[in-house]
Computed example of a mutant assay.
Amino acid sequence: MSGRRILTGLGEDGKSAILIDEPLDHSAGGAAMVWSAPALPIDNALPADAPFPVFSFDQMHAGGASFMVMEYPAEMGEFWHATDTVECVAMLSGEIVFMTETGEVTLRAGDTLVDRGIVHCWRNDTDQPARAAIVMMPAHPVGKGRTV
């Protein structure tokens, strides 16, 4: 998967600047961490680079917010889980099935989803990869969730 991560901030001279412009680094699981912040509200005076340069489940419990791009491989099977997070998902390409304990919905490019920490699963029924942009924020647990 191609793509770049570009981050802005203040340069050494105190003027607005592009601080990072590099290829996205995808982990074996298909996640590419674009950026994360250790706490909310976000302190824009901190360095531009993410404290978690590669996706880790530790991010979900770190107290801040993360932005990543996820690729779901073609014909990806189910992985049921719940996390103590709110995840804002925007589909960029392809299609993916989002499953709950009582139903499912197919998400396609242009669709958005806000997952509020419930037990859920992702599945790709197509022969093409799907890609989503995800903002993840910590949340209090809900219901009978099994956290990752």
Rank of each mutant, 00 (worst) to 15 (best):
residue 1 M to V: 10
residue 2 S to F: 12
residue 6 I to S: 01
residue 6 I to L: 11
residue 7 L to W: 04
residue 8 T to F: 08
residue 13 D to A: 13
residue 15 K to L: 14
residue 17 A to G: 03
residue 19 L to Q: 02
residue 26 H to Y: 15
residue 26 H to P: 00
residue 26 H to R: 12
residue 27 S to K: 06
residue 28 A to G: 06
residue 30 G to D: 02
residue 31 A to C: 10
residue 32 A to E: 00
residue 33 M to I: 05
residue 33 M to Y: 06
residue 34 V to W: 08
residue 36 S to P: 01
residue 37 A to T: 10
residue 37 A to N: 07
residue 38 P to H: 10
residue 38 P to Q: 11
residue 39 A to R: 15
residue 40 L to N: 04
residue 41 P to K: 10
residue 41 P to R: 08
residue 42 I to M: 09
residue 42 I to E: 08
residue 43 D to T: 02
residue 45 A to T: 13
residue 50 A to R: 07
residue 51 P to L: 04
residue 51 P to R: 09
residue 54 V to T: 11
residue 54 V to F: 01
residue 55 F to I: 03
residue 57 F to E: 12
residue 59 Q to N: 13
residue 62 A to I: 02
residue 63 G to D: 10
residue 64 G to T: 04
residue 66 S to F: 09
residue 70 M to K: 12
residue 71 E to F: 00
residue 72 Y to F: 15
residue 73 P to E: 05
residue 74 A to R: 04
residue 75 E to I: 00
residue 75 E to W: 06
residue 78 E to Y: 02
residue 79 F to R: 13
residue 85 T to G: 00
residue 85 T to E: 01
residue 85 T to D: 03
residue 86 V to N: 14
residue 87 E to M: 15
residue 88 C to T: 14
residue 90 A to L: 14
residue 91 M to R: 10
residue 92 L to F: 04
residue 94 G to F: 06
residue 95 E to S: 12
residue 96 I to N: 04
residue 98 F to Y: 15
residue 98 F to C: 00
residue 99 M to S: 14
residue 101 E to G: 10
residue 103 G to Y: 03
residue 106 T to C: 02
residue 108 R to A: 15
residue 109 A to P: 01
residue 114 V to W: 08
residue 114 V to C: 09
residue 116 R to D: 02
residue 116 R to A: 00
residue 117 G to A: 00
residue 117 G to Y: 01
residue 118 I to N: 00
residue 119 V to T: 14
residue 119 V to E: 12
residue 121 C to K: 04
residue 121 C to Y: 05
residue 122 W to S: 05
residue 123 R to M: 06
residue 127 D to C: 10
residue 128 Q to W: 05
residue 128 Q to C: 07
residue 129 P to G: 03
residue 130 A to W: 05
residue 131 R to A: 05
residue 131 R to E: 08
residue 134 I to C: 15
residue 135 V to P: 03
residue 137 M to W: 04
residue 138 P to F: 09
residue 144 K to L: 12
residue 145 G to W: 07
residue 146 R to A: 13
residue 146 R to Q: 15
residue 147 T to L: 11
residue 148 V to K: 12
residue 148 V to G: 11
residue 148 V to M: 15
